[in-house]
Design a protein around this nucleic acid. Structure first.
Lengths: 410, 410
DNA sequence: AATTAGTTTGTTGCGGCAACATACTAATTA
DNA sequence: TAATTAGTATGTTGCCGCAACAAACTAATT
């Protein structure tokens, strides 16, 4: 049975996690404040804090003097609690980072990968970088808390298996087994958009939010759904395919790679913006974009269009605004369905966030239901294109915060 | 603080609830089987069962002989555990039912209500029927476990206040206070679509499902989102407005009452079907619908169109099929977003479910993403137009199953 | 400067309680 | 009678709550 019952160990674990999360969210904080906030007895809090101290997950950091009475001993997360390795597998790159327990990056590297090469080669490339990363980390002489891996596709969390990634054409890859054998670390595998959502919850703009959506915009549009204080994955991990709402059934529209017509993402993904620009360039010749293309000997890309927009190019700016409106329509639908606190835009397209966001917000306001308390904040991810890499770190941190008992005393 | 910590009382409550829910879901069942399924110790299960017996929530029911060894004493829910009053407030009717703890209806009545009358009058009408219902129930000489009320609009669950119901033009109605003062019962207030979803989870077609959607189709299209094993309500209770996905922004389309154009519900609600029929009648004259209208001296309604469909009327059948395809497009989008186990169609429109469902399923298959394990079952609610009334009962039952300690021993 | 009162923090020891382990009794089949 | 399975009784473990207490400070007064 899937552990649906509770016992004393559960109580201890749960309260330990509550206290640790509070120290993580509101540092520095005293035992007395923890007792007030949690409703636990002072003595219980002391005992729990001792447990966390013994595991070196938190440490005492000076006294809070000022008011009357005995000064409080303040607690905060111990960044030296351990190191974490994060791996992001993209369609055409591998990114690896090492951070401390607070998510501060200590080492990182990103390498291009050839998606036409076979699977084993790309995995070996990732393993090689990870080993370098660990060698760099080991100099610090701190234990490793685990390795997180973010990948496109659906994932079996428990087994650490990538079930299916359409973009990579991969099926049933046992990342958990492979990486734990090679690194001897605890390995956590998660979908990239979900990982990014957890990053926002732990380190980003959704630290207090129970209900928010992370929209991952790039080649397609995917989503991480954070609902009722946890990730929602659906029956078998496919939840969050928000880009394929097929309602726009107008048959004159572009055919989506999913085989249907009128999918939201065909109006608001990377390629749609490039198309908009191309269409405009055929008519108008005042744009600086052709010059940039020639100078950089590059095809039209989002970074290039952004560069043009930065320089005030009208065609670039208008293309982003158009795409922003299309994106906003999808956002408005999501707001009506989910009534979230926030929607956070991330992924490759978010590098143009400053140009997309005003149009998105305008359309959202126009299209979502009018009740004022129903409005959701629309935000840009602070992690930009690194959201999933930070997410890979975050899933390890989150596991430690959830189950501090798993970390050994020493 | 919102009780984020656990103690021994929590453990007891939680395990008691687990055991009770198992007896509810898989009756009849023995203590030994409960111990195996829950993983709890046999002696613990015995103690928990004693607690439930003392509260008369379950009872022993014969022995399971057959195999070797001592025969098991089987347990099941005690229908006589108590009576429940359910109230559904519709836009133009009030429905009240009394059931036993298993949801078997003992008494029921439905009265039309005049939505143009003022609020107080409608509430008094409801209270009058509730008092009759309770008088009928009291003859049984069993305690009442509580009263559930399902209403359109958003609800503050804790306070039992209807925050806002656009269809009724009501704001801030303290149903909880009013009904508990008048009946001396514990009162639970819930949104109608959410209540219906809980009914499906407890009594209907979603008994085993952790992730499913209830689609309430009538004047509009609303949804109850059951995710991660519980209802999802969003930031402030507005979640589930699935009918207003504004993606179909084609400006030639009908303006939705929400002020936008192209909302899903304008293509698939009651009125859209009536419109389809009207448009067809202007062209074709072979339909029997005009005859039915004349005979019954009634405007075109869904029941009337269904009557025509039952008689094989082509225009009626084709109208339902068309609407079913529109509905299916929305379903497909929901399946992509939520990856649910099931989508259940209920509400007034579901009386025509047999004609809508084939078209819905066809469109769903065509429009949702192809992975086979991503498919969701599309089902008709077994409660038809009574889904929310049963839901009002279900929210009380669910509370008892969640917190059996609240029910007194005797 | 010394003293006293008052306040807040954190610890200690004890009691209550829930689940668990173990050893038992009960009721049946072979 | 032996084997098997169901359920009960007893004692143990471990967690939290409670209340008293020690510690460390500020503030006011002498």
């Amino acid at each position: 049975m899937s552990k649906n019952t509770a016992d004393q160990a559960f109580v201890r674990e749960h309260n330990l996690s509550s206290v640790l999360r509070l120290i993580h969210t509101q540092p520095p904080i005293s035992r007395a404040q923890l007792a007030v906030i949690t409703g636990l007895n002072k003595s219980t809090v002391s005992s729990l804090v001792d447990e966390l101290l013994a595991r070196k997950l938190v440490h005492e950091t000076g006294n809070n003097t000022g008011g009357a009475g005995r000064p409080a001993t303040l607690l905060e997360i111990n960044p030296q609690a351990g190191l974490i390795v994060g791996v992001e597998l993209g369609v055409d790159f591998v990114s690896v980072a090492v951070t401390d327990f607070l998510g501060n990056i200590i080492w990182r590297r990103r390498e291009d990968a050839d998606p036409t090469e076979d699977q084993e080669k790309m995995i070996n490339q990732a393993l090689r970088i990870v080993k370098e990363a660990m060698a760099a980390g080991e100099k610090k002489n701190i234990r490793f808390l685990g390795l997180g891996l973010a990948t496109p596709g659906t994932v079996d969390l428990k087994e650490g298996v990538l079930i299916f990634a359409p973009n990579l054409h991969w099926r049933n890859v046992p990342f958990g087994k492979i990486f734990s054998e090679q690194t001897k670390l605890r390995v956590f595998v998660e979908n990239d958009a979900n990982a990014a959502a957890i990053a926002e919850h732990l380190f980003g703009t959704a630290r207090q939010s129970q209900d928010f959506l992370f929209v991952f915009a790039g080649v397609g549009i995917g989503g991480g759904l954070f609902l009722n204080g946890k990730l929602y994955r659906g029956k078998n991990g496919y939840a969050g395919e928000i880009g394929h709402s097929p309602i726009m059934a107008d048959p004159s529209q572009t055919v989506c790679h999913c085989g249907n017509r009128g999918c939201w993402e065909t109006y608001a993904n990377q390629y749609s913006i490039i198309q908009r620009v191309q269409a405009r360039l055929e008519v108008k010749r005042t744009s600086i974009i052709p010059k940039l293309i020639a100078e950089q000997n590059s095809p039209i890309t989002i970074p290039l269009i952004k560069q043009a927009a930065d320089a005030g190019d009208r065609e670039a700016l208008d293309s982003f605004t158009e795409a922003g409106h299309a994106m906003g329509q999808g956002f408005a639908g999501l707001i009506n369905i989910f009534n979230p606190e926030k929607i956070i835009l991330g992924g490759p397209l978010s590098i143009a966030g400053e140009y997309l966001l005003p149009a998105i917000k305008e359309t959202v306001t126009r299209h979502s239901l009018p009740e004022s308390d129903q409005q959701a904040e629309v935000l840009l991810s602070p992690f930009g294109p690194d959201a999933s890499l930070i997410g890979a770190i975050a899933i390890v941190v989150d596991d430690v915060l959830s189950k501090p008992m798993n970390i050994e005393r020493r």
